[in-house]
Structures are given as structure tokens and as C-alpha cells.
Amino acid sequence: MRLAQLGVTRMLYRNAQAGSLESGDVMVRVSPCEEDEVSIHIESKVSPRFSNAIRNTVRQTAQELGVRNARFEIIDHGALDFVLRARVTTALKRAMEAPTNA
């Protein structure tokens, strides 16, 4: 069951990134956001007409992981939707890792 369906909200503890600048990939950078919102900045090397689709996928993936406060920077190099979902997922999981006491 998706975390959002369980009403779980998960915190981001750190800045994180996933993906690459290779063709067919996307670089996803995420940072915690103090307001209860998901903001998305998109830079696409392919076409600006995919911005809405990218925005929807990022929001949906964040919601499925129970994340409600995040700032995303997306640098798209022609990634298909499944690649974007995977990279957002990885970036969020990395950002959720609790800081360790060194």
C-alpha cells in the first residue's frame, strides 16, 4: 500500500540528487522545504512542452512516498517517464536518510 494512502508524511533531512546528465536520463536535485509544499523547477534540454508531464510525475512520485515538503530541481535530457520516476524516488530516499551522529 502506498504511504500516502496510509496518511504517512515523511521528512527530508538533507539535500540529495540522483540521475545524470547523459542523454535519455535526468538529473533530479531535491532539498527540504520549510513550507508544506512541493515546488518544482524544470530545465529541459529536449522540449519545454513536456514540463507539465514532468511536473505531474514528480508530484505523484513524491506523494506516493509520503513527501509533502520538497524543492525539486529537474534537469531533463530526454528521460522517459519511468526514468524520471526512478530518479525522483532515489533522490527522495537519499534525502530521507536520517543524519547519523558522527
Partner: peptide, 10 residues
């Protein structure tokens, strides 16, 4: 972790 997530989505 990134490869695992990508393969799952693929």
C-alpha cells in the same frame, strides 16, 4: 540504490 530503483521502474 539508483540502479535498483531504475530497474524496478523499467
Amino acid at each position: 540504490d539508483a540502479a535498483r530503483d531504475l530497474v524496478v521502474e523499467a
